[in-house]
């Protein structure tokens, strides 16, 4: 864990599902999943990505690069094109122009193959499978990594059993990792809001991603839950997964990310370390649209802006 973050004295008061993932769970998971080399070599890149809807230019020539083991924050006012950018990265939209590459290879056009290639995401408005249990949601995430022949599935042959056992085992570990071990048989729609967000993360991790895209992971969460989510994202990074986070909560982003990108009206306005971005007057003006002194004071005081939809 990052030494700069609040120590164990605060986490001890938290309910079990909000505490940082237990170390033994992280250890076994890291063994199951691939672990980053720590080279910071670019893994996910976009060059000159533009997206035009009718007359609206939602994204204009966005070029960025995510290094292995890096956490990047993507901020910007509502309607800046953040979610559109995620949709371009995951194949839900195919960009009007420009290219997205994963480990130097062009990103497949089909979302299913993007997932197979190692990019997973969560959604701004939670999109779990509501009538399936928490466990089943994670098992669906495992789909792309499972091998079951149709005949073996019908006859419950040895190959079928092996793949089911492996998937259940991994799903249990992932649920424990996000702090939902106790709720594995609960229907997703019956889980509290914060737990649904964590379940979405577990489901995304089940696809064995090398890149995880989180769309407003703390929207609607209280301070405790937000802190737990920060710890969770650090733990995910420690598993070897590179992370891109969209958030409105600037304090959250500045204390979480290695680098921050500011998107305004579809353009990449500023890119840099949290300190650089925080101090940049253009950002403060474009993003918050208020007199700089006042807003800067707010940011340093740790005020947060409300999450909304874009």
């Amino acid at each position: 864990m990052d030494p700069d973050q609040p120590g164990p004295d605060t986490t001890e008061e938290l309910p079990p599902e909000l505490q940082a993932p237990p170390e033994e769970v992280v250890a076994v998971l890291a063994e199951d999943m691939h672990v980053a080399t720590g080279t910071r070599e670019p893994i996910l890149e976009s060059s000159g990505v533009s997206m035009v809807f009718g007359g609206l230019r939602a994204l204009n020539e966005v070029t960025f690069s995510l290094g292995e083991g890096e956490i990047i924050g993507l901020i910007g006012p509502n309607g800046a094109g953040k979610t559109t950018f995620f949709n371009c990265l995951t194949g839900l939209y195919s960009p009007t122009s420009g290219q997205v590459t994963l480990r130097g290879k062009p990103m497949p056009k089909d979302p299913a193959r993007v997932t197979a290639a190692g990019v997973a995401r969560t959604f701004q408005n939670i999109r779990l499978f509501p009538s399936m249990t928490a466990m089943e949601n994670v098992l669906v995430g495992r789909h792309v990594r499972m091998k079951q022949g149709p005949v073996s599935s019908l006859l419950h042959g040895p190959r079928f059993r092996r793949s089911e056992d492996e998937a259940h085992d991994r799903a249990e570990k992932l649920l424990a990792f996000v702090g939902l071990g106790r709720f594995s048989d609960e229907l997703a729609r019956n889980l509290p809001y914060g737990d649904q967000r964590r379940l979405e993360i577990a489901r995304a991790l089940a696809t064995d991603p090398s890149v995880l895209l989180l769309d407003e992971p703390t929207a609607g969460m209280n301070a405790q839950e937000t802190e737990a989510t920060r710890q969770l994202i650090f733990a995910i990074r420690d598993l070897g997964v590179s992370v891109v986070v969209i958030e409105h909560d600037t304090k959250f982003i500045f204390t979480l990310c290695d680098r921050v990108l500011v998107l305004v009206q579809g353009e990449l306005l500023v890119e840099g370390s949290p300190d650089e971005v925080r101090g940049d007057p253009r950002v403060v003006e474009a993003y918050l649209g208020a007199p700089p002194e006042e807003v800067e004071a707010q940011i340093h005081a740790g005020a947060t802006t409300e999450g909304g939809t874009d």
Partner: peptide
């Protein structure tokens, strides 16, 4: 089959949210 196998779960997932099912590699 529908409750306990990979393709069965894929069927239920597709019936509940086809776009997200696609993002799960289905």
């Amino acid at each position: 089959f529908v409750e306990r196998t990979r393709m069965g779960r894929a069927m239920r997932a597709t019936s509940q949210d086809r776009d997200v099912a696609r993002l799960m590699g289905i």
